[in-house]
């Protein structure tokens, strides 16, 4: 999902007819693959996205702006983006801690925990919402009632975004050369200095990637928040639910406008992520 830019395979350096033939065949194969990939991406991703953006603008920029800044849409967008920022930051720290524990520590049941990390990916999000409501709802068996609160929204988002940072940091940490840490120690670095100067810089690109993906996922979340939040406009209604509500009340253009805002934010984050990764691979 996040593989670094693949370097070109062994180039056909040797001249001669055989090499030339290989090269041509590879090139036509590439063209076919490229064509298929682009057609598929266009049908599945690019055209629908373009249609949404097109739809959002079909009643002029003034309407777009009014649709986005209606009090309920604006509140939903603010809540969604604010909660997603909080969720991304919590993931950045705790996701890294979980990855660290899974890689560096041994404890009974580690394999099971490792398996459970992916559960939020596998579980239908509405089920996740139901589970959270059962534990933290009005009939909470542990006396913690987070139903219809913003904290409940954050909790639901934390649940569904848990795997991202863990699963991006974990492989990097596994591959990290332990000799580097021993070398730093023998050069006089205390454990914290070794972590800060040696381990952290090597993990940072993966941590940022995972955080960006968690953020992008959080702003789009619908299923898990819909039950626990109660969808109270101005208070706990997230943007995805707001979009759904607008479509229900036949305001397709308004729904498309809010969608476009989410799309732009997500693209911005992914663009920033790409910059960070380029900066990471350059070193």
């Amino acid at each position: 999902m996040l593989s670094a830019t693949e370097t070109a395979g062994p180039a056909a350096a040797a001249p001669g007819p055989a090499a030339a033939r290989t090269r041509t065949r590879v090139r036509s194969g590439t063209a076919l693959g490229l064509g298929a990939a682009m057609t598929y991406l266009s049908l599945i991703v690019l055209l629908p996205l373009a249609a949404v953006v097109w739809k959002s603008a079909d009643q002029g920029p003034g309407f777009f702006w009014r649709a986005v800044t209606t009090p309920d849409a604006w509140a939903a967008l603010k809540l969604t983006i604010g909660a997603s920022v909080v969720v991304a930051l919590v993931n950045l720290v705790l996701g890294t801690v979980i990855a660290w524990v899974l890689v560096r520590d041994t404890f009974p049941g580690k394999a099971l925990v490792d398996l459970l990390i992916d559960l939020p990916f596998a579980l239908p999000t509405i089920v996740a919402g139901l589970v959270l409501l059962a534990l933290y709802g009005t009939d909470s068996p542990i006396g913690v009632d987070l139903a219809y609160t913003r904290i409940g929204v954050v909790l639901a988002l934390l649940f569904v975004t848990l795997p991202f940072v863990v699963r991006t940091v974990q492989p990097v940490l596994l591959e990290l050369d332990r000799d580097m840490e021993e070398a730093a120690a023998s050069l006089g670095a205390a454990p914290w200095a070794t972590f800060r100067r040696i381990v952290l810089p090597n993990l940072l690109p993966a941590m940022v990637s995972g955080t960006a993906l968690a953020f992008a996922r959080a702003i789009a979340e619908f299923g898990s928040t819909v039950l626990i939040s109660g969808n109270i406009p101005f208070r706990t209604q997230v943007a995805a639910v707001n979009i759904f509500g607008q479509i229900e009340s036949d305001n397709v253009t308004g729904a498309a406008a809010v969608s476009t805002v989410l799309l732009v934010v997500a693209l911005g984050v992914l663009f920033g992520l790409d910059l960070v990764q380029r900066w990471g691979t350059r070193r």
């Binding site: 050369d177 000799d179 580097m180 021993e182 070398a183 040696i198 090597n202 070193r283």
Partner: peptide
């Protein structure tokens, strides 16, 4: 170290 342990 045998494998250099360079701070990459």
């Amino acid at each position: 170290f045998q494998h250099y342990a360079a701070f990459k």
